[in-house]
Design a protein around this nucleic acid. Sequence first.
DNA 1: CACGCATAAGCGCATACACGCATAAGTGCA
DNA 2: TGCACTTATGCGTGTATGCGCTTATGCGTG
Lengths: 96, 96
Amino acid sequence: MPIATLSALSDPTRLEALRILADGGEHCVCEMMTLLDVTQSRMSRHMQTLKQAGLVVDRRDAQWVRYRLNPDMPAPISLILDAVLAAYETEERKAA
Amino acid sequence: MPIATLSALSDPTRLEALRILADGGEHCVCEMMTLLDVTQSRMSRHMQTLKQAGLVVDRRDAQWVRYRLNPDMPAPISLILDAVLAAYETEERKAA
DNA sequence: CACGCATAAGCGCATACACGCATAAGTGCA
DNA sequence: TGCACTTATGCGTGTATGCGCTTATGCGTG
């Protein structure tokens, strides 16, 4: 099972999406595609991948679909996510 | 950088190889290909992938090439590895 | 040098993945 | 119903990945 998780994490766009969601809030696809400057179909598919991996959940809200981190994520997976996001931000600081 | 790491981790054979190396010792390719029941070329290539990702280092010892975890692994990457191996073993316990 | 064992690497193939483009489907509003 | 907006999906294409098969390379021994 961690392999599906790891595959889902092995992509810059998905990692950035998760970083956005790591604020604990909900974000619609349109917001994330703007923030990350990617096309709509690309953003939608990446979110689908994250959803299938159990990393995020979605909720329909009128015309929008709001994504957030899966609150029922298994603890071991959650620890992986934490470590990955921490490493990702460490790298960012190096780049800056 | 974590993306290269995550790609390298997204494979069952490589994950099992790392689990073997997680004992802190050195293991040659021939030992691991026997333990994991995979062909030589497959094992060799997987170890190459792990090496390029900076997760392991190798050392020539006579006819053998001994692999071990990279002792100079950056801390954030090491934390990812720990979390992944922990999740992997949790899963195993579930299966058993 | 010849041979055997351990490892790496070239090659071709099959499969998986990401992407853009176009289109469909769901929702709200006039 | 018609339209605008948001999101999902079918399709074709290019690229990456994993694999087995085969061959090359490194090393120790006789």
